[in-house]
Structure formats: C-alpha cells, structure tokens
Design a binder for these strands. Structure first.
Lengths: 285, 285
DNA sequence: CTGGACTCTCCCCCGGTGGGAGAGTCCACG
DNA sequence: CGTGGACTCTCCCACCGGGGGAGAGTCCAG
C-alpha cells in the first residue's frame, strides 16, 4: 500500500480542478486530502481520491451546490443518492421553466415594447360571486385556474346567472402567500341581497360575494400569454405614478378571452383594472 | 412643481422594492433619490421616479444584471436599448440551452448511472488523415461537425480511401481555446509515406496526417447524445486513476454510429479511447 | 414632550471562485 | 551542501444582489 501521494498541484492537473477549488473543498470538508503534513500544512492526495474529485467536477458542471454534492458523496445508498439527484433535477427543470418565461418576456421587451395604452375610466360598481384561494406567489396561475373551474361549476350547479367575463382579484401587496379570488358578475343573488357584502356565503358552499365599488380606474388590455402580464402591470403602475394617482387594491383582471374560449394562447386578451384615488396635493389621511 | 417627496419606506411600498434594494441602487448610482438631506442623510424620492424603479424591478425579475439595467435606463435611444436587451435575450437563451443539457445529464445520472464498462485493451497504431480546428470550449461540437464535413469532402475529392469510423482527437488538457482534429484512418497516403508524421500536408489542402501510436489504452462506449459524453469521460478517467495508470493525450473518440448514419440521437454510439502508461511504482521521468 | 415608527450607516452573511501578497518548502541540479 | 525556481501555505479582498441586525439618529402625531 505504498501508493505515492500527490501534491495538490499534480492532483489538480489530474482532476482538472483548480488548486483553489481543492483547498476550498478541503476547507468545507467535501474532499479532504488523505494526509496533511502537520509541520508545513502541505496537502497530499491519494490517487484513488481522483474518483471523488472527478465526481465533484462532474456534478459541479451540472451546477449542483457543493453541499448537495457532499450529501451524494456521503450517502452510500444508491437510492438515497438517486433521491437527492432527482430533487436537483426537478429544481433545475423548474429553473428552466422560469427562464423560458423570462425569455419570452425579454424577447417581447427587446423587440419594441407592445406600448400598452392605459386609460383613465369610470368603472361602475359590480357585485361578484367569488371563489377564494391562498397560494404561494409562484402558484398563482394554477390556483386561479382551479378557482375558475370551481366557480363555474358552483354557479352552474346553483343555477345562478352571471354576465360578462370572469374576474380575478389580487391584493395590491404581494406577500409570500397570496390570497386570490376568481369571480363572476351577478346581478343579484338570492339570500344575499341586503346583507353585508364581502362575507356572505352562498348556499351552494364555497361561493362568497364581493362588492367592487365603482369609481375612477386605470385600465389597460394585455394580449397574449399570462406569463407576460408583468409587462402590462409595469405599464399600468407606471401610469398610476406618472399621473400622480394612488392605487387602491385589489387589482382586478378581466379575462376577456382566455382558456375557456378554446383559442391559441397568443389570442388571449386580459383587461387589467386598478382603482385609483385622485389625491389632491393636500395631506392624506 | 411642489410635488411631495416620498420617504424611502413609502417609495419602497409603491414600487414593491425593499428599502435595502433602494439604498443599494442609490449606492451604485442606478437610481438616486432626487434629494438627500445633507444633515440627516435621509433619502427622498419623487413620484415620477417610480417609473424607473418599476422598470428596474421588471428587468430584475428577468434576471438582468443591475449594470445592464443601468445601461438600458441611461441609453435614451430605443435602438441602443433594444440592442442591449437582445444581447441579454441571447445570453438567457444560451443559458437555457446549457441548462437543458444539464437536465438531460442529471436525469440520466439520477435514474441510475449507465454503468459504463471500461476495458483495458491493446490498440494498434493508426495513421489518420485529419482536419484541424481551434475553437472555444463551448463550440467544440460545432467545430467537430464542420471538420467532419470538410474531411469527408476532401477525402472524397482526392480519392483517398479510408476505413472504419471517423475519429476525433482532443487534447488532454482543456484550455480556453481547444485544438480539435477529426480524422479517418488511411492505410497509406500518396506522397506522405515515409515522411515525418504529424506535419505532412496532403495535396488536396487542409489535410494533415496524424500518426497514432499503438499500445495500452482504456476504452469505453457511450450510447446516446454527445451532450452526455461527460458521463462517459467521468467513468473513463475514474478507471484510469483507479487502476493506477496515467493518461496520455490526445483523447480519441471513434464515432461508431453518428450523425452520418441517419438514426435517432439515442442510437449514437461513440467509443472513447485514451492511451495509458502503466507506470510502475518507480519514479517517473 | 414623548413614544413609536422610521431611517441612517456599518458590518457580516450567503456560494463558489479568482487574484494576489508575503512567507515558507521541496527538490533537482550543480 | 547550496541554491534557485517551482511549488505550496495562509490571509485578505472581490464579485453579485441582496438579507439580517446593531446602534444611533430623526420625524411626526398625539
């Protein structure tokens, strides 16, 4: 067993890692040399450590964090290892999905902004029958879709008539957890009229009533996939501040043309509406 | 023009940026408040700065570096801005491509490694007619493809016969710039026999001759896309070090089944070969 | 005038690596 | 047995885009 030990430089060349990297891996306990001269601090590696070093290099190429690489190396069981790697694979897949969304938006921004036309209008009050949900910020799309399905199902089952497009309601301040609502405009709901709006619950269960006050709003229409909605919101809120207004939540989205209409995503049309206060120059309450 | 100024906290809420971010953007000169109280250091923002702040937030969501965002904000010309954004779009697209490759490899690693069988063999010497190219490490695939086309074209035009699969030759030490070569085994080339190998140039131009010495080699066969070749190399070099051998460049790839064979990528088969020295335990020169 | 909310600066932290300073070590050759 | 050059050591700083927190100062409504 008198295998000759390698200095850090030779080991680095063998494994295509930099000396800096090897020292770092030693420091964090990922790959310690078999021997460290106590007098000089020189690190000496054994040839069979090249296996782990090459594995580290491979997994780093796949962009795995060093901590995760350490876990996979430490866990001898292949199924534990596979579980960790599957987790990282899913994480990477999620990042790719996010990046693809970003790419679409970036392309759209690069090729001349769609130049949203934001208009100041007077919106009349609406009474909505809504379904609510709370979800993480990343899952809003999914949650809204499910709410829409539940809403139309409940409305259909209870025989309530509604008019116009479906609406989505979103809080002005996005926290970690987002409370979203999907609603449909109803003229009057049995057992609800005259009650305190916002907390009423229809007989069919799961349906609330939300009263949207009328008044001045800024509004714009977005064409295309929902992933590019931030562009429209950017235009909308830019307009809010440029006109010296103040936004009042919740923000409303009217799904003029959407998934229920059986058209291509590019044909979707969504109207964004935000109520605004015309604050005069005087102090605000 | 007596628009009221906003404290950093109010401005942060308006723009959905954190106070920390706003201070950072001030520090790096990306978004300076219109007024900083010289006595207290308090930052005061104007309402119309929300436009830039929202743009910053939007572009940060798209993962643009702050420096790039600063450039786009500073450059008033729309075409300059579009050029910058197109550059970032391309950068993002390239990252997605890289990540997709990583995802494929990671999936493959997670679902049980293909467990490459690495064998120690004796390879006989070969004389190759080669075409060379130098390229960046990221463009190796493209360069090799072009070399292969040029090689077969030149060989066909000069009537030289070759046998067996095409070979790729790669340096053992990957630098920034990689010098690659693609070759085909020729029994004897007119005007070349007996000459000093390695520097001879065939009449047809662009063709060199490379003499591969025979001897002990480690070799394994990779099935699938070239993007997953690193897995095979990992197995190959792991075996080199585990058996106490030393690799001698250049590394050779034999394209047993490849793009020329008109089959699906999954059917590609590539044999990786690296010459090894059996170094005894004695000192090395 | 006071208390609570707000803001200031300054420092440390994350991940993974590169660069460099200054000092110490190793080894082959003379 | 020197010596010189290559190698290695430890420390510190930098990147990027922030987050967390300490300790001190400020603002404003009641």
């Amino acid at each position: 067993m008198h295998h000759e030990l390698l200095t850090i430089g030779r080991f680095a060349r063998l494994t295509r890692l930099s000396v800096k990297q090897l020292r770092h891996y030693d420091e964090i306990g990922l790959l310690a040399p078999v021997r460290v001269d106590p007098a000089t601090g020189y690190r000496y590696y054994a040839a069979d450590q090249a296996r782990d070093a090459l594995t580290i290099a491979l997994l780093r190429d796949l962009d795995l964090p060093l901590a995760v690489i350490g876990e996979t190396l430490a866990s001898g069981a292949p199924d534990t290892r596979a579980k960790i790697l599957r987790g990282e694979r899913d994480r990477l897949a999620a990042r790719i999905t996010r990046d693809q969304g970003r790419l679409r938006m970036l392309s759209r921004v690069a090729e001349g902004l769609p130049s949203y036309e934001v208009t100041l209008e007077r919106e009349h009050g609406r009474r909505l029958a809504v379904v609510r949900a709370t979800c993480a910020a990343a899952d809003v799309g999914k949650a809204v879709g499910e709410c829409a399905v539940r809403l139309t199902g409940l409305l259909g089952a209870s025989g309530v008539r509604w008019q116009g497009p479906l609406w989505g309601l979103y809080p002005l301040d996005l926290e970690e957890r987002v409370s979203v609502a999907v609603g449909a405009e109803v003229a009057g709901v049995a057992g609800v009229d005259g009650g305190r709006p916002g907390d009423e619950r229809l007989d069919s269960g799961g349906l609330d009533v939300e009263e949207l006050a009328g008044g001045a709003v800024l509004s714009t229409v977005h064409s295309g996939a929902y992933g590019e909605l931030p562009l429209a919101y950017h235009a909308l809120f830019t307009a809010v501040h440029e006109r010296g207004l103040t936004a009042r939540g919740p923000v409303r989205e009217a799904y003029l043309v959407g998934p229920g209409d059986d058209v291509a995503v590019e044909e979707y049309r969504t109207r964004l509406v935000v109520a605004v206060d015309e604050e005069e120059e005087e102090a605000v309450a």
